[in-house]
Nucleic acid binder design. Structure first.
Lengths: 68, 68
DNA sequence: ATAAAAATTATCGAAAAACGATAATTAATT
DNA sequence: AATTAATTATCGTTTTTCGATAATTTTTAT
C-alpha cells in the first residue's frame, strides 16, 4: 500500500486520541479507524480538510507515498 | 475550498501535459480536469498513488490545506 | 490482575461520488 | 487560422464512504 496515512504522529503532538478526533471530525471511530489503518480506498476532500484543520497540519504531514 | 490540489507545478517540472498524465494514470482528461480544478469531492487512494508515482512526488507536493 | 476505556474489525444499507464514455465548448499552442 | 489541449457538461454504472450497530481485541488506568 504505497500511500500511507499516518495520523498517530500528529495525534500524539496534539495529545489527542482517535475517538476525540473522530468526534471533532464528525465521523464514527469505526470509520476513522479504517482511515488510520490504511483500509480506506478513497477519502473525501472534506474529511481530509477537517482532519488538517483539527490537527493543524498539512496533508503532507499525514500522507506519504512510498514506492512499490 | 481549503484543500487545494495543484498539479501544474509538478506537471511543468516533468514537462508533461494533462492529457499525457491522464493517459498514464488511466483516467479520462475530463476526470483529471475535475481534480485539477478543485471540483472533486473525493479522491481514490489508488489515483493519488498513481499520480505520485508518475510525477515522482509526494502528496504534499500537490495538496495544500489553506485555512478558512 | 481487574476493570474501564479506546481502538479495531465486521456487517448491512443508504447516500455520495468516482469514473467511463461521449460531446460540446473554451483556451492555449503552433 | 488551424490544431491541439483543457474544461465543462450529461448520463449511467460501479465503487466507496459513512452511519449505525455490535463484537472483539488492544490499550490504559486502577
Amino acid at each position: 500500500m504505497p500511500i500511507i496515512i499516518n495520523l498517530d504522529v500528529m495525534l500524539a503532538k496534539r495529545k489527542m486520541r482517535s475517538n476525540e478526533l473522530a468526534e471533532k471530525i464528525g465521523i464514527t471511530t469505526a470509520n476513522l479507524s479504517i482511515l488510520k489503518t490504511g483500509k480506506a480506498k478513497a477519502i473525501r476532500i472534506s474529511t481530509l480538510e477537517t482532519i488538517c484543520e483539527i490537527l493543524e497540519c498539512q496533508p503532507g504531514d499525514i500522507m506519504e507515498y512510498v514506492k512499490e
